[in-house]
């Protein structure tokens, strides 16, 4: 009697496990299909120097240069009510232009559900335009013609880019590493960080963010850095050759480089708040401006 009761117990408890395993085996492919459905991968043949644009609301965008004459994109979305729209111009043959945009199908989708993450590989010489409202943007190893990146709150990181780079974020931090060509970086509250630039021209402005410049000033380069209330740190090698014009209205100016002071241009600022001179032969031109922030110049 006890054995029969035990057998019955085993049978009744084994049944739900079996059903569970069976149901799971049915559900698994469905889950995989659903995951696949939120990920889109596309490849387009591209003409020389194509133009690629991306418009996104939230999510990370990563763009890398590669040696194929193709634009390859992988896009993952969080919600099935968000999709990737792509437009190729011309419709047949190698693309001169490829436009990607995140399309929110349901206006009720909000917050993180709007997220779409992009990963792109683009040919060298690509002309890039990226707008990502609340997402971060990263560009790596790209020899481009022109790249424009704009965000509202997302961070922007560009490394090993050659060409004309225009980056702007209202509240996000901007980092530009080993850029060559011409760089323009603007933010209101974000920090700006430049590492080892080889740029011929650099324009950088932030209102309350901090500016950190680490690297040399290549010969003939023209560098203009301006912030309103954040601090500015310039760290350069002893071999840097530049002509300096630095001024701050209410902040301090701390210089640890052996600058040869030149004739001070007409300015109401005291010598404690402004510095005009050359380091070595003054081959690059460096202009540093702040209203109430501190400017520090020192050797690496």
């Amino acid at each position: 009697m006890a054995d029969r009761h035990q057998q019955k117990t085993i049978k009744t408890t084994a049944f739900p496990y079996g059903v569970g395993i069976f149901l799971c085996s049915l559900a698994l492919p469905g889950l995989l299909v659903a995951a696949e459905g939120n990920r889109v991968e596309k490849t387009f043949e591209a003409a020389p120097n194509p133009r690629v644009t991306i418009s996104n609301a939230r999510g990370q965008i990563l763009v890398r240069g590669w040696d194929k004459q193709q634009v390859h994109i992988v896009c993952s979305v969080v919600s099935p009510r968000v999709e990737l729209d792509s437009e190729v111009i011309p419709p047949g043959g190698p693309a001169d232009k490829v436009h990607f945009s995140t399309h929110i199908l349901d206006p009720l989708v909000s917050g993180k559900d709007q997220t779409a993450d992009y990963s792109l590989d683009v040919p060298m010489g690509t002309d890039l335009e990226i707008r990502d409202t609340q997402g971060s943007v990263k560009i790596e190893k790209l020899q481009g013609d022109d790249a424009t990146v704009e965000t509202v709150g997302g961070a922007i990181v560009v490394s090993d880019f050659t060409g004309h780079l225009f980056v702007r974020s209202i509240g996000g931090n901007i980092e530009v590493i080993r850029a060559a060509g011409r760089v323009e970086a603007y933010s209101i509250t974000g920090d700006l960080h430049f590492v080892s630039p080889a740029t011929s021209k650099l324009r950088a402005t932030t209102t309350s963010g901090r500016i950190l410049f680490e690297g040399d000033f290549p010969d003939g380069g023209d560098y203009s850095l301006s912030e309103y209330s954040g601090d500015m740190d310039i760290i350069c090698p002893p071999s840097a050759s530049f002509e300096l014009n630095a001024k701050t209205d209410r902040g301090k100016l701390e210089n640890a480089m052996p600058i040869t002071i030149r004739h001070q241009p007409a300015t109401p600022l005291s010598s404690a708040n402004s510095l005009f001179g050359t380091h070595l032969t003054g081959k690059a031109t460096v202009s540093l401006k702040s209203f109430s922030g501190t400017i520090r110049i020192r050797q690496r």
């Binding site: 509202v152 209202i170 209102t207 309350s208």
Partner: peptide, 9 residues
């Protein structure tokens, strides 16, 4: 983000 920026300006 917009409000922080506007307040900073």
């Amino acid at each position: 983000t917009y409000e922080n920026s506007l307040s900073s300006l």
